[in-house]
């Protein structure tokens, strides 16, 4: 009986050590950097301080970037949901022997680099490309271009995170007992009513997981805005963090403050969302 008390610690130790070294320590370091002050007269050097001015700069100068990050990520989540749900439904219920092939097709893009795929989108959406030409002929392209607009950024985000939406929804739908759906039909519910009252609620854990897995990384993404967006008007928080960290001499603390604010913002939004749409079933 006595032996048991230390066993959990031993089993937990590797995981905890991992968390302490690779999660907690960097997080604390990040928080500490976000409060540093620039060394007067020596741009690029800092001293330890409690300088909340970095947070004032982060929120004051880059509010629009936070707004865009949340907006674009939300739009991408909605679009990804609209595309992924029918897809996942088809794979789960209608694919038959094609199911595995379809799953592989959803995941196949992961086998190539995400950056390369985004650069490929620039070629696909280029002014002289098929998409832009067709839309231009149909007078559906007011600015005469797709790349370097917010449309391209949101489309890129939607594309990038689609599998993160589709797979959890598929997993959720796959677990639905088909007899429950049959029962709905037996009780004279139409196809739509059955879907609305039986299938959709039962797949909610998957939908919730999918939306979180899409929204959270999309809000922090900067590659799509960098490669598909414009200079002013479509850049997201990730772009500012990159620029402050790498390119602005003395921007380290502001970059750290931006990261902390973004983390807090996402935490609050996700917290509110999960509370609203509740998830006892969310694994």
């Amino acid at each position: 009986m006595k032996r048991r008390t230390w066993l959990p610690y031993v089993l937990l130790a590797p995981g905890l050590a991992w968390l302490a070294v690779f999660y907690l320590a960097p997080l604390v370091q990040l928080a500490s950097v976000s409060l540093q002050s620039p060394f007067p007269g020596y741009p690029g050097y800092y001293y330890r301080n409690v300088d909340v001015g970095n947070y004032v700069t982060a929120l004051g100068s880059f509010g629009a970037h936070f707004g865009r990050s949340v907006l674009y990520a939300a739009l991408a989540t909605v679009f990804a949901f609209a595309l992924a749900y029918p897809l996942a439904y088809a794979v789960a219920f209608k694919a038959g022997r094609w199911r595995n092939l379809m799953l592989v097709a959803i995941m196949a893009p992961f086998l190539t680099s995400f950056i390369l795929r985004t650069i490929a989108w620039r070629q696909i959406l280029a002014d002289d490309g098929f998409v832009a030409r067709t839309l231009g002929v149909l007078h559906l392209l007011p600015g005469e271009r797709i790349t370097e607009t917010w449309v391209a950024v949101v489309a890129g985000l939607t594309y990038t995170f689609l599998p993160f939406m589709a797979l959890p929804i598929y997993a959720g739908l796959e677990r639905v007992d088909p007899r429950l759906i049959e029962a709905g039909t037996d009780l004279y519910a139409g196809a739509f009513t059955t879907f609305r009252t039986v299938t959709l609620p039962l797949s909610m854990p998957g939908v919730l997981a999918g939306t979180l897995l899409t929204f959270i990384p999309a809000a922090g993404d900067y590659v799509n805005a960098e490669l598909l967006g414009s200079d002013t008007g479509t850049k997201m928080v990730g772009n500012v963090i990159e620029s402050q960290f790498f390119r602005v001499l003395g921007g380290y603390p502001v970059a750290a403050a931006l990261s902390i604010v973004l983390m807090g913002l996402i935490l609050v939004l996700v917290g509110a969302y999960v509370r609203r749409f509740g998830t006892k079933e969310l694994v």
């Binding site: 007269g41 741009p43 690029g44 414009s230 200079d231 002013t232 008007g233 479509t234 850049k235 772009n239 500012v240 990159e242 620029s243 402050q244 390119r247 602005v248 001499l249 003395g250 921007g251």
Partner: peptide
């Protein structure tokens, strides 16, 4: 100081 100041200002010009 110029290096830091112009660099930061340029970042704003390009939307960061």
């Amino acid at each position: 100081d110029e290096d830091a100041e112009y660099g930061a200002r340029w970042a704003k010009v390009v939307g960061n």
